[in-house]
Design a protein around this nucleic acid. Structure first.
Lengths: 338, 338
DNA sequence: TTGAAAGCGCTACCAG
DNA sequence: CTGGTAGCGCTTTCAA
């Protein structure tokens, strides 16, 4: 009642183990009769190959592990779809390991749970230094996406520039500024990308001598944007103002809450987010956009190059932000149409 | 320049291979000196264990593969977080394989890409029959979540009952009914759960002799809810009406579009969704809720039981729907306050 | 076209 | 406490 192996199949089919292997791997030059008998035996015994043994032999797994902070957002869906698309031509599969919360994160770091049976590792939105105190416990190709590091291949977005771009737009509207920042809790760091965005924003503000009249903090999920907006309303603020949120998700969450208070983006206050998401476009919200799919595609290319061994020098690609101006930052409000 | 093995470490540390293994696996009764020399050698050579070999030896991988249709929604995030939480006590890791699109799906089915180096398989929101024409190419424990099948352990939601419950509420409001259904494209089936919901709705409607004045179809993503709503508006419909959407995501997407046309849920039209999402609650939208986290927890329990071998009989757990009534289905509209 | 056998890297067993 | 060794299941030589 133990799991059948190639040898069991071989015996049952009356052939050698190597013939079984050849049939299973579609080798040429196999007699029809042998093939038929092997397949019949496989069927009868319910044989399934042992992937660990196969990988041990071949030195390959056919999978690429992806370490990412979470999955429940359109951003990661788009990003990973693009990576996937670029990879499946070469028959690689993506295995996702969301770090969902501090607990899991700790396990990763401490117990050294080297769980990736994979040929390469894609680290998304995270710094390897943060993940692993010292050297990566992984001697296969590593590529960073939406993050960067001096010692690793990386595909990233110019978040400081994006932050500056956003701040410039905000300043140009000459309204009191409210900053919707990300929260830093114990064990719940925002991704480095957010910190860089914030850095770009603050740098520009301080250079112009401007201080936000209020800074709110929210965890990076659209639902938390609502909570922050509640705080804002509770603070007794009155429009008009310029709400600069560090992500589209946060901005959208906040705008929904503000709408319930009767304030509409582009009419009562101005609103700007980051990422250039589809939802931002649909909601008529301005955004500092990043080319998410392109970045995913670039990551796939880099992974393939690294796997092919043709990557002796460090590849570091940085994508530039672009501004998507829509109704939510309409300049008319500035002119005091209210 | 080849990857170092235990033997290399052993030689470098001047000990035997088994001692290296013992140190690496924290066995007791190891002399401090041996331990120190092994660890030094590991560090120096940059040794990383080969997981395929380890799994081959032990017959275990420490991972559970999850096959799911997509990841970019709060629903799956919540569901999988719960599974994860129930599993990590036992040191299992979840490896996610989103089926993102038809192409990947085909690969799975045809090339028999048996990519899961795992101890068990969790199939989410999918029918094994749809995924694999015949028998599952996997002889380890299999559990279905948000799906069911006569031959497999399963944790599911009573979608037909949920559909009936939704239809009953809708009928009680005595308004023209618009149904926001899911689309079925080539290679893009909605999950079985949606089909069952629809079945429950239609069954109740036909029993009462009611026909929707319009049925819209959208892919299962919030963004598509907007498109459907555009069609609805374009059709020249006038409030009041009752919009019954097969998911909260769809409902929310539609409501945002309708709001731009000046129609507000609960005031101009009534709106009901499914799933009991946090966003629905925040938006004051009624929903036929399912206990997502509980279901995830139950899946974890079932997986653990199956892995422990203590699951001789088939486990099939079905969770019941509960109605969350909020402002979006306020009965006042029925009374003609308009 | 086929079979026998070596060996991938690791851990468990058995001596010492 | 430690080292030698067998063997997990598979694929790939090498000979036939």
């Amino acid at each position: 009642m133990t799991k059948p192996s190639v040898l069991d199949v071989a015996r049952s089919a009356g052939v050698g183990a190597s013939t079984v292997s050849r049939v299973l791997n579609n080798h040429p030059h196999i007699s029809e009769s042998a093939k038929a008998r092997v397949l019949a035996a496989v069927e009868e015994l319910g044989y399934t190959p042992n992937l660990s043994a196969r990988s041990l032999r071949s030195g390959q797994t056919g999978a690429i592990s992806v370490l990412l902070p979470m999955t429940g957002t359109a951003f990661y869906e788009t990003l990973l779809s693009a990576v996937q698309a670029g990879l499946e031509v070469h028959d690689y599969d993506l295995a996702l390991f969301p770090l969902l919360g501090e607990r899991r994160f700790r396990r990763f770091r401490e117990s050294g749970a080297l769980l990736y049976h994979a040929d390469a590792l894609l680290i998304v939105s995270q710094s390897p230094d943060q993940l692993y105190a010292g050297r990566l416990p992984f001697n296969k190709p590593v590529v960073l996406l939406d993050a960067h590091h001096p010692h690793h291949h990386s595909i990233s977005f110019d978040n400081p520039a994006a932050g500056r771009m956003a701040a410039e737009l905000a300043l140009s509207r000459r309204l009191p500024l409210v900053l919707l920042d990300v929260a830093e809790g114990p064990g719940d760091w925002p991704s480095p990308a957010f910190l860089e965005r914030r850095g770009g924003v603050l740098e520009t503000l301080s250079r112009r001598g401007v201080t936000p009249i209020q800074t709110l903090h929210a965890h990076t999920s659209p639902n938390y944007g609502r909570e922050a907006a509640q705080q804002l309303i509770a603070s007794g603020i009155r429009p008009p103002f310029f709400l600069l949120a560090l992500s589209d998700d946060l901005a959208l969450g906040a705008s929904r809450q503000l709408l319930e208070a009767g304030w509409q983006a582009g009419r009562d206050y101005l609103l700007l987010g980051f990422d250039g998401s589809l939802e931002a476009a649909q909601a008529g919200m301005s955004s500092v956009a990043q080319p998410v799919s392109q970045m995913g595609g670039a990551a796939a290319e880099t992974l393939l190059a690294a796997l092919g061994g043709g990557l002796s020098t460090l590849t570091q690609r940085v994508f530039a932000p672009s501004l998507q101006e829509r109704a939510s930052t309409a300049a008319s409000l500035v002119l005091g149409s209210r």
